[in-house]
Amino acid sequence: MLALIPGAGASARPIDLIVIHATGGPGCKHGRLWHAPGGTLESNLRHFATHPNIGYHYLIGRDGETVAGTPETQVAFHARGRNSSSIGIELVNDGNGKDPFPPAQINALIDLLARLLHRYDLTPDRILGHSEVDRRAFVCGKKRYKLKIDPGGEYPGSSGNFPWKRVREALR
């Protein structure tokens, strides 16, 4: 189910990239590597509503429910340095490379991506993970870690689990 926001649709701004995110992510607590859980669709909607400095164009729950956020005609602050010409899609997921991406969520993502690729005349190679466009890092316990590993990249104890192959093959 897609909840549309008035004004969503074809954009007057040039779109050349779609960035996939996960709502969870790594951090440091008391000198130890920690990973924030991805939460639920509802908890993420509340989070974004109270944090106007971050945004998304679409948020997809584990059950495939898709909610539109910032209209595509406007910039959503989701990927530092890439916001002005991209669409940001958040997936409710821990993003730790272990939390599974349910089939309903990936099917909804593929459907949305197919529409966006067509709308903006893009090819599947213009879909990237947040980890590919944000190279920032942080230090925790005297070790350096990548800040953005989403949507489901490598993380200590995991080799990553986002189904890039399935997504890209479905969009050919």
Rank of each mutant, 00 (worst) to 15 (best):
E65S: 06
G81Q: 10
Y56I: 02
P37K: 11
G55K: 04
L109Y: 00
N107Q: 14
A114W: 06
L41R: 11
W34S: 15
G38V: 10
D111W: 06
E132D: 14
G31F: 05
G97A: 02
P14F: 14
R80K: 08
I110L: 00
A68C: 14
T50A: 12
H130F: 04
T123W: 06
A49Q: 02
H47P: 01
K29I: 10
T23G: 01
G39A: 15
F77D: 08
L112A: 05
G64F: 01
A49D: 12
Y58Q: 05
A76Q: 00
R32I: 07
I106G: 03
G39N: 14
D16V: 09
R126W: 01
H130A: 06
Q105G: 03
A22N: 08
P26N: 10
G55V: 02
A104G: 07
S86W: 00
Y56S: 03
G129L: 11
E65H: 10
V92H: 11
V92L: 07
H35W: 13
I18P: 02
I89M: 01
G64H: 04
G81D: 03
A79Y: 00
I60D: 00
F101H: 06
N44F: 15
G129K: 08
Y56G: 04
L122M: 10
I18F: 08
D16C: 03
K29P: 01
G39Y: 13
D16T: 12
H57V: 08
G24T: 15
A12T: 15
K98G: 01
I20L: 08
D125N: 12
L17D: 07
P100S: 05
C28P: 07
L59F: 15
T66D: 09
F48S: 00
